[in-house]
Simulated scan of single mutants.
Amino acid sequence: MKVAVDQMKCGTIGICVKECPEVFRFQEGSKKAVAVLDEIPPRLHGKCREVARRCPNEAIVITE
């Protein structure tokens, strides 16, 4: 599983960064979120799906 943050949709709200800091971080300067792992470990799949669901801007893209 891989995740990415659509930079055009990211509204810097930070749900992903707060709820799943193992995968998401704020970019310095812009404060938009980015995924910091290339491949998501299976133990974090559920957490990533949950923050993607909760993102108000639908900025988190998941690929299997």
Rank of each mutant, 00 (worst) to 15 (best):
M1G: 00
M1C: 09
K2S: 02
V3P: 00
V3L: 03
V3C: 12
V3S: 01
A4R: 13
A4F: 09
V5T: 05
D6Q: 02
Q7P: 06
M8W: 10
M8L: 13
M8H: 11
M8R: 07
K9L: 15
K9Y: 14
K9R: 15
K9F: 12
K9I: 07
G11K: 15
T12Y: 09
T12F: 08
T12M: 14
G14N: 09
I15N: 11
C16Y: 01
C16E: 07
C16I: 04
V17S: 05
V17L: 10
V17A: 09
V17E: 05
V17Q: 03
K18V: 13
K18G: 09
K18I: 13
E19N: 12
C20G: 02
P21V: 05
P21N: 09
P21C: 06
P21L: 06
P21D: 11
E22I: 00
E22H: 11
E22D: 15
E22W: 09
V23Y: 04
V23H: 03
V23R: 02
F24Y: 09
F24P: 02
R25F: 14
F26Y: 15
F26W: 14
F26D: 00
F26R: 04
Q27E: 15
Q27C: 08
E28A: 10
E28M: 07
E28C: 02
G29Q: 08
S30K: 06
K31A: 12
K31C: 09
K31V: 12
K31F: 15
K32C: 02
A33L: 04
A33N: 04
A33H: 06
V34W: 03
V34G: 02
V34D: 04
V34N: 03
A35G: 03
V36Y: 00
V36K: 04
V36S: 00
L37Y: 03
L37D: 00
L37W: 04
L37P: 00
D38E: 13
D38Y: 00
E39C: 01
E39A: 03
E39F: 11
I40L: 12
I40T: 08
P41W: 01
P42D: 15
P42R: 01
P42H: 03
P42M: 03
P42E: 15
R43Q: 14
R43I: 14
R43G: 01
L44G: 01
L44F: 15
L44N: 05
H45G: 02
H45E: 08
G46I: 03
G46M: 06
G46W: 10
G46H: 08
K47M: 10
K47T: 08
K47H: 10
K47Q: 14
K47Y: 07
C48I: 03
R49K: 13
R49I: 06
V51E: 10
V51F: 11
A52F: 07
A52P: 07
R54F: 10
C55T: 05
P56E: 04
P56D: 09
P56T: 01
E58N: 14
E58P: 01
E58H: 15
A59N: 05
A59F: 11
A59P: 06
V61E: 13
I62L: 15
I62K: 04
I62F: 14
I62Y: 13
T63N: 07
T63E: 14
E64Y: 10
